[in-house]
Design a protein around this nucleic acid. Structure first.
Lengths: 97, 97
DNA sequence: CCACTTGTGAAAATCCTGTAACCAGCAGGG
DNA sequence: CCCTGCTGGTTACAGGATTTTCACAAGTGG
């Protein structure tokens, strides 16, 4: 998809062939998001896929990791926003900015 | 229905497959309207479905959110008017302009 | 030790919501 | 015509809710 390639089997995400240095959690989150492009995913769904089980009521893990992911994606692909926030609901991955 | 798809379960409204960035209230209102196409819905009905309960005597919330909704729909679908005003009564959703 | 990751708390930034205006259009009465 | 009242469209604003970001403690493995 464009300049970004995600290869879950290889535990890798590449931008223009160069691997991003993502942590395990960051990669899991990116994989989960990118497997459902253009679909708005709730925090519950994302938490279940990445961490498993249900998040605590006041758990902000998803938000924190989205932030970390955006920071690294932003470095590799300046000016593009791949992860969109949907207030009160969750996040959405859009391959094309 | 044409280029607009509404998926309440997914918290999404799509135009040509692209999700609109609607707030929760805006989406609720659009869902309520679109679930009764071509039917004129009173402010009371809409308020009950979206906010619950009865509106204050001078409540303009429905009008304000209809306006906001029209603005966003108008951006995504220029030249089409999906929400029609029925003076003294309420609003009507028409899938085809 | 050191470098790194992870989850948590909390401050900072941002967005949403409901309300109160302000306007324009219209109809009826005088 | 000119008021007046009524209806709906739109915008501005304050408060609240939500999200983003930073800092830190604990854990892991080299």
């Amino acid at each position: 998809m464009g300049r970004l390639e995600i290869r879950p089997e290889e535990h890798a995400a590449l931008v223009d062939g160069q691997p991003l240095s993502l942590t395990v959690r960051e990669l899991q989150l990116l994989v989960s998001l990118s497997e459902h492009p253009q679909r708005i995913m709730t925090r519950e769904e994302l938490f279940a896929e990445v961490w498993g089980g249900h998040p605590r009521d006041d758990d902000r893990s998803v938000d924190v990791y989205v932030s970390r992911l955006r920071a690294k994606l932003g470095e590799a692909l300046p000016g593009r926003r791949l992860i969109h926030t949907h207030n009160g609901i969750g996040y959405r991955f859009s391959p094309d900015g």
